[in-house]
Design a protein around this nucleic acid. Sequence first.
DNA 1: GTACATTATTGAACATGTTCAAAAACTTTG
DNA 2: CAAAGTTTTTGAACATGTTCAATAATGTAC
Lengths: 219, 219
Amino acid sequence: MKTRKGEQTRALILETALELFRERGYDDTTMRAIAERAGFALGNAYYYFGSKEHLVQGFYARVHRDQLAACQPVLEKERGLKARLLGVLDAVLITIEPYHRFAGTLFKSAADPQSPLNPFSRESEPVRLESISLFAEVLENSNVKVPSDLKAELPYLLWLYHMGIVLFWIHDNSPGQSRTRRLMELTADLVVKLIKLASSPLMRPLRQTTLRLLATLKE
Amino acid sequence: MKTRKGEQTRALILETALELFRERGYDDTTMRAIAERAGFALGNAYYYFGSKEHLVQGFYARVHRDQLAACQPVLEKERGLKARLLGVLDAVLITIEPYHRFAGTLFKSAADPQSPLNPFSRESEPVRLESISLFAEVLENSNVKVPSDLKAELPYLLWLYHMGIVLFWIHDNSPGQSRTRRLMELTADLVVKLIKLASSPLMRPLRQTTLRLLATLKE
DNA sequence: GTACATTATTGAACATGTTCAAAAACTTTG
DNA sequence: CAAAGTTTTTGAACATGTTCAATAATGTAC
């Protein structure tokens, strides 16, 4: 039956939750507070979201949507790899910025291999794949040529790199997370140089060894 | 006053906790169960350990002590860097093996920047510094020569590498965590080769750039 | 040994995530 | 529209981490 009424309540609960997450962080946002502000009984929140953590999956999806939108202009205009990469990273940081306080305690659960919030988990797969394909896009329409063996794995590697930046951002307490931005600039440059270096025919043997290692890791 | 009685109770509670962690994992070990099996009232556990997480600091200290002991023979005998490195990694894996189930849910908290369990936190500093100095030892008495600029940072980098291995181990559900052992072999070889490569005078400029980046990251 | 101080221990209370059976609201069917 | 079925909502109950004031045990000083 899945009526419109349900969808509305569901959306309202998620909105309220994100609002409270921004205001007080994860731990200090109680399920009771969410239910109360949304105007429902406690149990109702659990009808739509199986647990507090499931609310965070909603957060992921929401944030990814906003990131896509935020980096579109740059990806349409720019062709240089570094500029495109920075465009995406910039979009990511801008989108998650209001949630900095929230992100710390969130990553609690995210690091647990059993948790559905883990970026490598099956539950996170949809968002993860979408995110990886965004980096494929970054690469695809840039003016940098990479050999096909590397090209296949590079989007995933760039996604990993981007996760590293986000991890650093979480720990970054400098005003406005300025250190993360510095890191972003420095490493983006390095990453692009490294890609060009690794693409050289001279590097083929080392490149293939490394790619094989990577394949082993991914099962 | 800090009498012997107190120390005994404290030790008993920690022992019981580790026992239960091994048996049922972290989440399924309730503070009540620990208190009950140790033969005390619930509140008493909190007299000695401020929270459930504080019990984990006890786990860290204990495990580090065992690791030191386990790798001592290899460090006294071997001089080759790869063998010494593998000796330590092997000791680490052997020591934490009974806690594999526990480690997953544990790293929940460990990833939270605010949590005292975070390996980078101030509370973890004592154990962290001891662990880093173990890698200094690995390097110091090996037969590999590294330039002094690199030598200063290398123990920390090796510690990071070792944390990466442990992180992989946590996620590794292959029987006996055999994939982690394969990864260990492969990467230890790579790491040693990389160290030798980075030590070459030709690599000085790139090495220094990278070290400067690292310094920036560490504040 | 008695009085005092410190350390250990208890048990009850509280907050919060989660579950669930029952009630209410809504939709479909005849 | 009434009956039957489905979705939504409620409120009370439960488990567990945590706190705290009260009590017991232990040590110290005279």
